[in-house]
Nucleic acid binder design. Sequence first.
DNA 1: ATTTTCTCCTGCATGC
DNA 2: TGCATGCAGGAGAAAA
Length: 291
Amino acid sequence: MPELPEVECVRRGLQSILGTRPPSENSVGFSFAKHPRPVIERLEIRCRDLRRPIPKNMSKLTEQMEIEFIDRRGKYLLWHLSRGVLISHLGMSGSWRLAPPGDERIHDHVYIHLKGGRRLAFRDPRRFGVLLWAESGKEGEHELLCDLGPEPLDTTNFSGEALRKRIGKSVSPIKNLIMNQKVVVGVGNIYASEALFRAGIHPKTRGSRMTHPMCDRLANSIREVLTLAIDSGGSSIRDYRNADGGSGAFQTTFQVYGRDGLPCLNCSTPIRAIALQNRSTYWCPVCQRKG
DNA sequence: ATTTTCTCCTGCATGC
DNA sequence: TGCATGCAGGAGAAAA
């Protein structure tokens, strides 16, 4: 389900629901007084089966801890608690929501009971998500996080040059490369096609044939499409919902994704579909010539 | 070693 | 209506 824009929108939704402070690189001097720090009264595990099992001691670890703020790294949500970090990945079908009394659904894996009576639910029908624990300050060393590439919206660490270096001499199709979270985080199947279209690059172009200008264009397109998607609240294709229940609108703005056979919005040539890594890939044969 | 394919799981749309 | 099939926004193991 969720790529970077959807995860970021969920993060903002949770932040809004909880009233917690936004993440900031330097929290010194930040006004904590303005922001509540909700207390986890009890973390209730209903089903531990996910891509990795939820640790048995997760309830014990989070008991009575305050939620300070919620951050994001790639497609991971990082719940910074008073002592420790809750690492959450939504996989393909995961969601967080505020679950009022009586709102119990099939595939609800976890309930977070907050002091004051509110309850957050993590639900993941396909179980590709993750809910793990890291010690404070050690989350970056976690094996799921330590090899992640740069944040595409972080202009100091992500650029055409940074992209080019990560691609190296790989002969893999560029679409596969930008979906590799070690190359750049947050890009999934939808935004990969969309970014390549905007950059005018054929998805099967080998990494080794990506020129400097092409890398610059692609880095800019990735940043642009992800930013626009966040501003639209993400993309809701089948069931994506933000934590506040709202859906995104960026799916109405797709230029190639899911538009197999429809006219290119730029040149009217029918959009085509191919499979790369068994994932549907869409491109315009005229606007995206192969490198 | 790198690259491609398969697999994990449920739900839903489609077609017979 | 019922059933089989394929596909879905991720990511890592297995196979090539």
